[in-house]
């Protein structure tokens, strides 16, 4: 009777097999070539096969040897760490550096179970100020302080273009 005795190994094996499947799919489009003319698929084919062997071995380990359970996952932290990062990537151009970073910082603070509005706002303020000094003023990072979306928003409510110099 097969049962998962070592979940850490078992799921690692499963996960790696999923990776193998994705790469196998990608390999379908690639020319393998020969030893004298290795194609773009030559190296990946060797590596994918190797990973397949290792993944199966790890999976079998998970069925045969004893191991510890995986343990609880901090979903809240996971969400509040990754979602703000994605938000930053998605909005740094549109909203601009300052609003995007401020929202990202506030949202990240919520990842802690001990967060409060006061400390989150304060952290965001300090961070935005510090980053502005270091990255925009000091290093000249080429990014708008206030982005193109806000520019169109301001324009649509009648703000004259002449006063929207920092939004582009």
């Amino acid at each position: 009777m097969l049962s998962v005795k070592n979940p850490k190994d078992f799921y690692a094996g499963v996960l790696l097999l999923c990776v193998v499947a994705v790469y196998a799919l990608g390999l379908l489009d690639l020319r393998i070539g020969s030893l004298s003319r290795p194609g773009p698929g030559y190296f990946p084919l060797i590596l994918t096969s190797l990973l397949f062997v290792f993944a199966v071995a790890i999976l079998i380990n998970g069925l045969r040897t004893k191991g510890e359970p995986i343990g609880a996952v901090p979903w809240r932290a996971m969400f509040f760490v990754t979602a703000p990062v994605i938000f930053f990537g998605a909005t740094v151009k549109g909203l601009g550096f300052v609003p995007s970073l401020a929202i990202t910082a506030i949202a990240t603070c919520m990842g802690s179970t001990q967060w409060t509005w006061k400390s989150a706002l304060l952290t965001a303020l300090v961070l935005v100020f510090f980053s502005y000094i270091v990255f925009i003023w000091g290093l000249g990072l080429p990014v708008a302080l206030c982005g193109s979306w806000l520019r169109s928003l301001f324009l649509s409510v009648g703000v004259p273009a002449t006063s929207l110099n920092l939004c582009y």
């Binding site: 703000p84 910082a105 802690s112 952290t123 961070l127």
Partner: peptide, 15 residues
Amino acid sequence: PYRLLFPAIVAMCCI
């Protein structure tokens, strides 16, 4: 305190 430190690290990583 870590609750203040980690948002800073995340923000710095983003930039």
